[in-house]
Design a protein around this nucleic acid. Structure first.
Lengths: 113, 113
DNA sequence: CACATTACTTGACGTATGTCTAATCGTACG
DNA sequence: CGTACGATTAGACATACGTCAAGTAATGTG
């Protein structure tokens, strides 16, 4: 599998045509965000970034099952977009702002200008 | 269906929690990009932006069938990320840099700082 | 240790997606 | 008009994805 935590920058725009491997890596990370539930999750996590948010709280807020939220958080986590830290029986998720910003830059046509 | 050409900005970060409708609109546009072939298409189109590129040329370059490329270009076009203009029997595709930049801003955690 | 709480995993189900071949549409040019 | 060329559409197929219910794992508390 491909290391989705590596840093990428300005692939499509600046450095000529993107390679197959880079295109796949970018697509996999974008796929991790390209779902309405996960967009809402990122939004929720970004506005309540203080200490992170728990699976069960997110499930209640989005009116979806724990299993479904766990699935989505796993996708975002595997893509390197979330960090998690356990406190007691709960696991608190936070957005890794650097990773998200890096992903954003890759498809930004104005990047590297 | 949802109008994917409307402009969105800074939804997750600044303006509190994103609405269901906005989350869906953002996710649909991200889905349009979240595919390795379409990432390569965007890359190809961005670096050869002069006059646009034809379906058949892209198909040859990516070694996929015309129908498949047409499918992917349709996805990107429906998402408002490409413009197309006919010259003769050929249709030339170009990236709508403003739309792409707007999409990028929506998920940029550093947007609106 | 037994129990409660929280999160994750598994298996199942329906739906959506990517790809191709073949057929259709649009435009140009003898 | 008929033929050619480029692009899209339709249909078919395998694969991937989102969701849930049920079961399992990890941690804390009496």
């Amino acid at each position: 599998m491909i290391d989705l935590t590596a840093t990428l920058c300005c692939a499509p725009v600046a450095s000529g045509v993107i390679s197959d491997d880079d295109a796949l890596a970018v697509a996999l990370r974008l796929k991790a965000v390209a779902d309405p539930v996960r967009v809402k999750l990122l939004s929720l996590l970004l506005v309540s970034d203080i200490d992170g948010v728990r699976n069960s709280d997110l499930a209640r807020h989005l009116e979806l099952s724990d299993a479904t939220i766990s699935h989505h958080l796993g996708q975002l986590h595997r893509a390197g977009l979330l960090t998690r830290s356990r406190r007691g029986t709960s696991i608190y998720y936070r957005v890794d702002r650097n990773s998200l910003a890096a992903l954003v830059r890759v498809i930004d046509p104005d990047c590297c200008l």
